[in-house]
Design a protein around this nucleic acid. Structure first.
Length: 423
RNA sequence: GGUGAGGUGGCUGAGUGGUCGAAAGCACAUCUUUGCUAAAGAUGCGUAGCCUUAUCCGCUACCGAGGGUUCGAAUCCCUCCCUCACCGCCA
């Protein structure tokens, strides 16, 4: 959520920076400005009337004590009460409308965010490793892992429908090994605290991180309980500190969480047709940071480096791209995507999206921190996958497949997996 | 799911209709004094909104949440949520 004062005082600048995004938000800014004027006028009027009522009510109390008749003056205050109700409703409606509008305006892209219209203009930041060479035609992971009995799409479809999968045997074990490899790496080498959160959350959490109200059709919802299945651990983990004032000594806060992620993928083309690449449910280890505004950009670099380390240790070729203003996520101010090479696909797959949200999420969830001078300030929040599992699984299987159909397990993972190869 | 007890400021905890945003204690900050690894005293110390050139002043709201009664609600009434205990059920 943007600061209404920022919009009020720098409307043109705000519009200009939002213009870099895809979509037109200038009219929303105008609308919020208009409602803000209305809201403040009503609020001022209401408070003046309340002040009158408080004063007169006090006089009634004192008059009654001294035995005077107060019926005339009571009637007068009744009139004020009616007026307060009327103007109060007006103020409340305007206030709610203003909040709705603010919640549907995306974050301002950071000055450091490259300007561009779409994904084609995302600059490549760096490349690690090289595309592996094969003495044979590398196969798709569905064939390699399918032949070894590691994944079963038919079983997934039978139980839950399309775009669900059952991992089994070495596949299930590989998935589990990856999860503990990732968590161990981030908690013991990178200084993150491990979190295992609930997978069902209240709507407030989704508003806090920005999925609601705009993207409600992408999350699973249990109407009977009004709870939502998390689309990413970002939601419960960042909201751990919703409505809190955190002491500055605690910053930066670093959390790592493994959770399954649930996404409806409504309207996604090609859902489930490319093996494990786009599923309704997938595992992910998420990294979340809460930092001071001064350090958030440096923390974005370290968070991204922490995620990259995963691919380096597994010996997987990848590239890092920076999202341009036209491609950046709704709440993000600056984002790096890490894309791993999948030889069987002949393409790079996004396995991590590392974003600095600035104060956008923190303001939505009323998260603050007390600085060195005892002043309440709004911290910055960041998150990134470290990394998504299903696609990591794809890259691993496709990169380490052998001519005989077996899969080699990279050195770094052998301790967790308990073997050097599959098949 | 049932029954009972509760939800007050960073914490503990008073407060059952009228100068209560709320006593007191603890914690914290600044200052003073004695002195020295501590003690005593003074002062200050919640959040948000409105007004405003202003983080001054002033005003408003907030005592789990939302409604209601009343001239006036932390205090009375209703609904809901949460915590704790016991029972039931259960991985």
């Amino acid at each position: 959520m943007l600061d209404i004062r920022l919009i009020r005082d720098n409307a043109e600048q705000v519009k200009q920076r939002l213009a870099g995004r895809s979509g037109d938000f200038a009219s929303l800014v105008d609308e919020v400005l208009a409602i803000d004027t209305q809201r403040r006028a009503a609020e001022t009027e209401r408070q003046k009337l309340q002040s009158d009522r408080n004063r007169i009510s006090k006089e009634i109390g004192m008059a009654k004590k001294s035995g005077q008749d107060t019926s005339a003056i009571e009637a007068e205050v009744r009139g004020i009460g009616t007026r307060i109700d009327e103007i109060g409703r007006e103020a409340d409606v305007a206030d709610a409308r203003q909040r709705d509008l603010l919640l549907s305006i995306p974050n301002l892209p950071h000055e450091a965010c490259p300007v561009g219209e779409s994904a084609e203009q995302n600059p490549e930041v760096r490349v690690w490793g090289t595309k592996p060479e094969f003495a044979f035609e590398p196969k798709d992971h569905t064939h390699v892992a399918g032949a070894l009995g590691m994944i079963d799409f038919e079983a997934g479809a039978k139980i839950s429908g399309s775009a669900f999968v059952v991992y089994r045997g070495a596949g299930a074990r590989l998935e589990r090994a990856l999860i503990s490899f990732l968590l161990d790496l981030h908690t013991t080498q990178h200084g993150y605290e491990e979190i295992s959160p609930p997978l069902l959350v209240k709507s407030e959490c989704l508003v806090g991180t920005g999925q609601l109200p705009k993207f409600g059709d992408q999350v699973y919802h249990s109407a009977a309980d009004d709870l939502y299945l998390i689309p990413t651990a970002e939601v419960p983990v960042t909201n751990l500190h919703r409505d809190e004032i955190v002491a500055h000594e605690k910053l930066p806060i670093n959390y790592a969480a493994y959770t399954p992620c649930f996404r409806r993928e409504a309207g996604s083309a090609g859902l489930g047709t490319r093996g494990l690449i786009r599923m309704h449910q997938f595992d992910k280890v998420e990294l979340v940071k809460i930092t001071t505004p001064e350090t958030s950009m440096a923390e974005l670099e370290s968070l991204t480096a922490n995620a990259e380390k995963v691919l380096q240790l597994l010996g997987l070729h990848y590239r890092v791209i920076e999202l341009c203003t036209g491609d950046i996520g709704f709440g993000s101010a600056k984002t790096y995507d890490i894309e791993v090479w999948a030889p069987g696909q002949g393409t790079y797959l996004e396995v991590s999206s590392c974003s600095n949200f600035g104060d956008y999420q923190a303001r939505r969830m009323n998260l603050r921190y007390k600085d060195e001078n005892g002043k309440n300030r709004i911290p910055h929040t960041l998150n990134g996958s470290g990394t998504a599992l299903a696609r990591l699984f794809v890259a691993l299987v496709e990169t380490y497949q052998q001519a005989d159909g077996s899969i080699l397990i990279p050195e770094a993972l052998r301790g967790h997996f308990g073997a050097g190869k599959i098949g």
